[in-house]
Write a protein that binds this DNA or RNA. Structure first.
Length: 174
DNA sequence: TAAGTGCGTCGTT
DNA sequence: AACGACGCACTTA
């Protein structure tokens, strides 16, 4: 039977079983390039079961599974597979790099992220870039709040953001 | 105070 | 040209 698992862009998709449901990890030849929340998977996705997956990707996937497990439990992530963030613009990649630096249990406001980038006025653009994050949870965009510890938004749904932050011990206002 | 309105500013579509 | 996962200043009640 023909293996239709390879996406049109040369992307392989592998499921990740967690206590919160089945995530879907995307891999390009360069690394992890996407992560879907359980309820976000569109029926058109074909997942792969082994044969044509390179040992390299299998290795990355092991790291993804472990990292996701830790992260969902509110624990610090030790190791991530290489990330392929080439889908993003320069600006977005700069934002995502800042997000990666936010430790578990810590948060930054959109404005503070903009500060890190050297342009406080870019706040709104930062919000947009957060929403474009292709690897939620592992690139912790949920740790970016609005000012005054307000929840802000979340592309995966605010319930997820609240849940993730609660597990990391972050207190919200409102 | 708390809640609501207006607007600057930046990257993206 | 229009739109946000914003943040402030500034009304109102």
């Amino acid at each position: 039977m023909k293996n239709t698992a390879e996406g049109k862009n040369g992307v392989w998709k592998l499921p990740v079983q967690t206590t919160d449901g089945e995530f879907l990890a995307h891999y390009s030849v360069n690394g992890l390039c996407g992560l879907d929340f359980p309820y976000k998977q569109d029926p058109g996705n074909h997942t792969v079961n082994g044969a044509r997956i390179s040992s390299e990707i299998r290795e990355w996937h092991k790291q993804t599974v472990k990292a996701l497990e830790s992260s969902l439990a509110g624990r610090m992530v030790n190791e991530l597979p290489p990330l392929d963030l080439s889908c993003g613009t320069d600006f977005q990649q700069r934002v995502w790099r800042v997000l990666k630096s936010i430790a578990c249990g810590k948060t930054l406001s959109y404005g503070e992220v903009a500060d890190e980038l050297g342009d406080r006025k870019a706040v709104r653009a930062v919000g947009r870039a957060c929403g474009a994050n292709p690897i939620p949870v592992l690139i912790p965009c949920h740790r970016v709040l609005a000012s005054k510890q307000k929840i802000g938004g979340f592309s995966g749904g605010l319930d997820w953001k609240r849940k993730l932050l609660a597990r990391e011990g972050v207190l919200l206002l409102e």
